[in-house]
């Protein structure tokens, strides 16, 4: 059967419905929990095996040794593909993903974040 303007009923009923569009920057969008967003690093737990660096598909992680059993991580959010493979590779669970996803920046340097190791308290002893 052929009917012109088949969608008309649905289309007119849309007039009385709320728009499906979300006015994004004004209405914040909730991501489901366990959404793979920005990666955070806990220097306390890191043992410096550097397996995360090896497995990262984008080469976004750089782990540096800054002292005896002290490591700091440098992340390039511009390179990261948010696959969260590093969080699975890390057997000490020093890397975790958060739900944060609004990371855009006009400055490339701002995308590079460093997780510093805790200041050395053994030196003060």
């Amino acid at each position: 059967m052929i009917r012109p303007a088949k969608m008309i009923r649905q289309v007119l009923s849309s007039l009385f419905k709320k728009p499906a569009t979300n006015l994004y920057p004004f209405n914040k969008f909730e991501m489901p929990d366990k959404f793979r967003g920005k990666i955070v690093f806990d220097p306390e737990l890191c043992v410096g095996c550097k397996l995360c660096m090896k497995d990262c598909p984008a080469g976004a992680i750089n782990i540096k040794k800054v002292g005896e059993k002290k490591f700091e991580a440098e992340f390039d959010l511009g390179k990261c593909v948010y696959c969260a493979q590093c969080t699975e590779t890390c057997f000490k669970k020093a890397l975790k993903f958060t739900g944060e996803f609004e990371l855009a920046s006009l400055d490339r340097e701002k995308l590079k974040i460093t997780f510093n190791a805790k200041p050395d308290d053994t030196a003060s002893k």
Binding site: V11, S14, K17, P19, A20, T21
Partner: peptide, 9 residues
């Protein structure tokens, strides 16, 4: 047109 398409417009 937008409201008929369930958009904000």
């Amino acid at each position: 047109y937008a409201r008929l398409q369930n958009r904000v417009g």
